[in-house]
Design a protein around this nucleic acid. Structure first.
Lengths: 220, 220
DNA sequence: GTGTGCTGACTGACTGTTCAGTCTATAAAG
DNA sequence: CTTTATAGACTGAACAGTCAGTCAGCACAC
C-alpha cells in the first residue's frame, strides 16, 4: 500500500495511528473511559500491541494528548504564514478555538481540552506540558499583535498583557460553546472575542452579517 | 452528637455527609478515580450504605457535583447581601473564582469544575444542569452591574453583554490559576479581571499594593 | 411485627498487563 | 542459491486485581 520507506518507518506509522486513534477516542468518551482495547480495535491490532508500543495505558493516553495539542499549535502557526492582516489573523485564531469543527485530521476537539485540564490538575508531568503549550499559544497571540504594530496597523500596546487576557477570554468562550450554552452560541462568542480585541488594540472591526452557518460539527 | 431533629432527619444528614465527601474526593482525585468505597470510608459507613442511598455510583457523583456547585452560588448570593459597593462586590466575585481557597465548607474547588465540564460535555443531563448553573452565575454578575447603575456608581451599560464577557474571562483566568501557570499567578489574575471590569464599566479601580499573601487559605 | 437504617460477605464483569510463542524479513553462513 | 540465525513486529490466551452492585439478615424504633 504505502511506499515502505516514504517517511517514517512502519512502526512509526503504527505509532501515529495509535496516537490519533487514542486522541479521537479520548475526545469522544473521555480519558478514563478510553480502553486500550478500543484503541487497538480502531487501528486493527491486538491490545497487546498497543502495550508493546507504549508500555502502559497512561503513557499512551498522555502521549495522545500531547500529540494532538502539538498538532493544534502547528496548525495555528501554519495559518500565520498564510495570513498577514492583523484582523484576519485574529479572526482565524478565534475561529480555531470558538467555532465547532469536525476535522478528523486535527482532533484538537474540545473534549480533549477538558481532559487535558483535568489531567494537568492532578499529574505534575502533564501540568508542565500544559504550561509550555499555553505559553506557546500566548506567544502566538503576542507575535500577531507585534506584527500588527510593526506593520502600522495599530498603535503600540502591551502585547503580553493583551495575550494573557485574550487567551483567557478565548478559553472561557470556547468552554461555553463546547458545552452548548444557548446564550453563548458560536457566532456570539466570535463577536465577543473580536470586538474585545478591536477595542483593546484599537482597530476597526465589524461583525460580518452572517458567518458560516452555526452548524454542529458534521460528526457521525 | 448532633441534635437529632435539629434540622434535616438523620438520613438527610447522612446524605449531605456523603455528598460533601464525594465532592471533596472528586476534586482531589477526579470523577472516575473516586470509588464508592472511598466515599463510604470518609463518612464512616459501609460501601453498601452509599449504594443504599444513591442507588448507583453515577447518581452519587453527579449529585455531588450539583451539590457543591449550588453551594458555591449560594455563597455568592449570600456575599451580595453583605457587600453593597460595586467594586467590592466584583472583587469578592473575582476572589471566589481566581484565588486559591481551601475551604472545607465549600469544596467548589477547581478540580470539580474540570470534571463538571468533562461530564457536561458527554452527559446530556449534566449538560443541562451546567447551563442553568452558569446562567445563574451570569445573572449574579448582571444584577451587580444593574445595582451599580441604579446606585449611580457607574453609567448605564449593556449588563448582559458584560456578564457574558466577564464570566468567560473569569473562567479562563481561573483555569490558569488552578493549573498553576507561572505567568498567570493569582494576584495577576485578580488584577487583570478587575482592571478589565473597571475599564468596561467605567469606575475607578487601583490594585492594592499587596493582597492577601497568595497562599494557603485560612483553613479550618 | 413491621419498617427502616445499616452491614459483611460475596460475585460477576471488566480490563490492564504479562507471556510464551508465531510470523516475516533481513543478514550471515555455507 | 540455499540454509540457518537473529531480530522485531505481533498475537491469543490467560492472569490478577479492581470495583460496582447484590443479598440475606441484624438491630432498633414505633
Amino acid at each position: 500500500m504505502a511506499p515502505r520507506s516514504a517517511v517514517g518507518s512502519l512502526p512509526d506509522q503504527r505509532r501515529d495511528q495509535m496516537l490519533l486513534a487514542a486522541a479521537v477516542l479520548i475526545s469522544e468518551r473521555g480519558f478514563s473511559e478510553t480502553r486500550i482495547a478500543d484503541v487497538a480495535e480502531r487501528v486493527g491490532a491486538s491490545p497487546a500491541l498497543v502495550v508493546y508500543y507504549f508500555g502502559t495505558k497512561d503513557r499512551l493516553l498522555t502521549a495522545a494528548l500531547r500529540y494532538s495539542e502539538t498538532a493544534f499549535y502547528a496548525a495555528a502557526e501554519e495559518m500565520l504564514t498564510r495570513t498577514r492582516s492583523l484582523s484576519r489573523r485574529l479572526e482565524s485564531l478565534v475561529d480555531m478555538t470558538c467555532v465547532p469543527q469536525g476535522s478528523d485530521d486535527v482532533p484538537a476537539a474540545w473534549g480533549l481540552w477538558f481532559d487535558l485540564w483535568a489531567q494537568a490538575f492532578r499529574q505534575p508531568q502533564v501540568e508542565q506540558d500544559r504550561i509550555e503549550l499555553d505559553q506557546r499559544w500566548r506567544d502566538v497571540i503576542e507575535r500577531v499583535v507585534h506584527d500588527g504594530v510593526d506593520a502600522g496597523e495599530i498603535a503600540a500596546v502591551d502585547a503580553e498583557e493583551f495575550a494573557v487576557t485574550f487567551s483567557c477570554l478565548l478559553d472561557g468562550l470556547s468552554i461555553q460553546v463546547a458545552l452548548k450554552d444557548p446564550v453563548v452560541v458560536p457566532e456570539r462568542a466570535f463577536r465577543v472575542a473580536m470586538s474585545f480585541a478591536s477595542r483593546e488594540l484599537g482597530f476597526a472591526w465589524k461583525p460580518r452579517s452572517s458567518r458560516r452557518a452555526a452548524g454542529g460539527a458534521p460528526k457521525g
